[in-house]
Simulated assay, not measured.
Amino acid sequence: MLDNGLDLNFPAWPQYDDTERAGLVRALEQGQWWRIGGSEVDEFEREFADLHGAPHTLAVTTGTHALELALQVLGAGPGTEVIVPAFTFISSSQAAQRLGAVAVPVDVDLNTYCLDPAAVEAAITPRTAAIMPVHMAGQICDMDALGKLSAASGVPLLHDAAHAHGARWRNQGVSALGSMAAFSFQNGKLMTAGEGGAVTFPDAEQYETAFLRHSCGRPRTDRTYQHQTSGSNFRMNEFTASVLRAQLARLGGQIDTRERRWPVLAEQLARIPGVLPQATDDRCTRNPHYMAMFRVPGISEQRRNELVDALVARGLPAFAGFRAIHRTKAFWETGAPDESVEAIARRCPNSEALSVDCVWLHHRTLLGEEEQMHAIAAVVSDALAGL
């Protein structure tokens, strides 16, 4: 409780109870701790697929590995390009770059922070192997436009759904939209085992290819080391899967709470002069709200960072928005396009703006009580006034 009576004692994250404990013991006592011979990973894949409308799910070690594996299945590699948002976490581009592909940043919509279909269309070349929509903070990209663009160009989509567990577009799960989707279970995500990832597949052939590649190219029943393709060890272990099964079971109720809280918080934030909360698209019929995001247009990057520090000092779990990927050293190490930083910046003005003026709050804030949404807005207003 703050001196002014505002309650910022939000629920802790990660959340767990005896369900996770029981799952860990169950995995321990089955006597097989890896997926070949165990049952937890298989059961988690089935349950996750059911929730997302996916014919097939493959659990893997991390969300970054999920993207890398999916891109490999799609043929991304040397001589190819992958279109990614300029405003995203760096894993979106690095997954392509580590395969030897060129990551091509394109701009996002300034209201939803999601991939701009017009910018995508302008970036497609004969070398484009995939288009990667990132469903920012749980807000699904314009899948009507991107789906039509993919069908017309023949370039497949790969959903970066690291923020979009349980999200729905026109009442369909991300994985029911006919494309592969990659999810993350890193410690801060909407469901977590500390690390972990998953890829959902629309058809069995892609799934089987991915299974081989995630297990060093080795078939499930192989006993004579008949490695059929190149790959790596991206297998999820049984303990991780047991925790994720428990996390998945409470995901729906948590999303329900966040969906009730975000409209209240967004309305309160919008009343603060100079603050613009992330917009929503009504076609996204279920938004899990991985982050509560807002902009302060016109603020400098230094002042934005000072604002984040002020919010943290007042008890809010606040963070600066992602830096545009072309503004990081990592992006230029390998697999960068033959353009200068400033050339990319000129064609990605919205991503440039978001790099400077965007702030986000951890999703556990949206698990608080409705009165706490008013408290959050009051703290943001006070912090801005104090800059």
Rank of each mutant, 00 (worst) to 15 (best):
M1Y: 07
F10K: 14
P11A: 04
Y16G: 09
R21E: 00
L24I: 09
E29G: 00
Q32W: 01
R35D: 05
S39T: 10
E47I: 06
F48G: 02
H52P: 11
H56F: 15
L58P: 12
T61L: 10
G63Q: 08
E68R: 14
L71N: 13
E81F: 14
P85W: 13
P85I: 13
A86N: 04
T88K: 05
I90H: 15
S91P: 07
A95C: 12
Q97L: 13
R98E: 15
R98C: 15
V102D: 13
V106M: 14
A119L: 07
V120Y: 10
A137D: 08
L146S: 08
V155E: 07
P156R: 12
L157H: 11
V174F: 02
G178K: 13
A182H: 15
F183K: 14
S184D: 10
L190D: 09
T192A: 04
F201P: 00
P202W: 02
Y207R: 06
D222L: 05
S230D: 08
M236L: 09
E238D: 00
A241Q: 06
A241W: 08
S242G: 05
V243N: 01
A246N: 11
L248H: 09
Q268V: 04
I272W: 02
T285G: 02
T285A: 02
N287Q: 10
G298K: 00
L307F: 03
G315M: 03
F322H: 09
H326Y: 15
A330F: 05
A330N: 08
E342F: 01
R347S: 11
R347L: 07
C348D: 06
D357H: 05
V359L: 00
L361P: 00
L361D: 00
H363R: 04
G368H: 02
E369V: 02
G386T: 01
L387N: 01
